[in-house]
Simulated scan of single mutants.
Amino acid sequence: MTTFHIRAEEAHDISAIYDVTEAAFMGIEHSDGAEQDLVDKLRAAKALSLSLVAEAEGEVIGHIAASEVLIGGGAHGWFGIGPVSVRPDRQQQGVGIALMGSALDQLRAESAAGVVLLGDPGYYRRFGFEVVPGLVYPHAPAEYFMAICLNAPEFPQGIVEYHSAFGG
């Protein structure tokens, strides 16, 4: 296994991010097949608050995105993470864990209140994500919608609204 490092997205990474994201979600049961387009839409709308890549031997092997969300129409400083993508041949090698850790560290350092995401609880609980009663994303099963406080003293309550690029 070769080593990799995490860094901020650069302009020359855009097509590789698209390809990695498309490959990572191909054939995934709960995917709509549009995750790679979502990243481009967020970037085009200047709504991509955080975009990190995992790079090994000059190639992008993973990517994580974050964008601001609104909670209950008013809570500020909250971000939604997603999509998180790792090239299929590099999965199960710690790339996703490193991307998530770097993203949370960066958001915490930038005084983000907290983060929400939609994903497998068995995977994301290791980072401190939990299902929060009263924090609602009506477009998915409640057990897959989780949050973590970074700098907020407590979780806000209300319906979570992602950027319009998410289409939901």
Rank of each mutant, 00 (worst) to 15 (best):
T2H: 10
T3I: 01
E9C: 06
D13R: 10
S15H: 10
T21K: 09
E22M: 11
E22K: 14
A23W: 07
G27R: 00
E29V: 10
H30A: 11
H30K: 10
S31H: 08
G33D: 09
D37W: 11
L38E: 05
L38R: 08
L38N: 09
D40Q: 14
R43A: 05
S49F: 09
V53N: 06
A56L: 07
V69I: 13
V69T: 12
L70A: 14
G72N: 03
G73T: 12
A75Y: 08
H76L: 15
H76P: 09
W78Y: 13
P83C: 02
V84P: 07
S85I: 02
V86Q: 11
P88I: 00
Q91R: 02
Q93T: 13
A98C: 02
L99W: 03
L99P: 01
S102L: 11
S102Y: 13
S102D: 15
A103H: 02
A103Q: 12
L107M: 05
V115Q: 05
L117N: 04
D120K: 00
D120P: 00
R125D: 08
F127V: 03
P133S: 01
L135R: 06
L135V: 08
Y137M: 01
P138Y: 04
H139F: 09
M146T: 10
M146N: 06
A152F: 03
F155L: 02
P156T: 13
G158K: 04
V160G: 00
Y162N: 01
F166W: 15
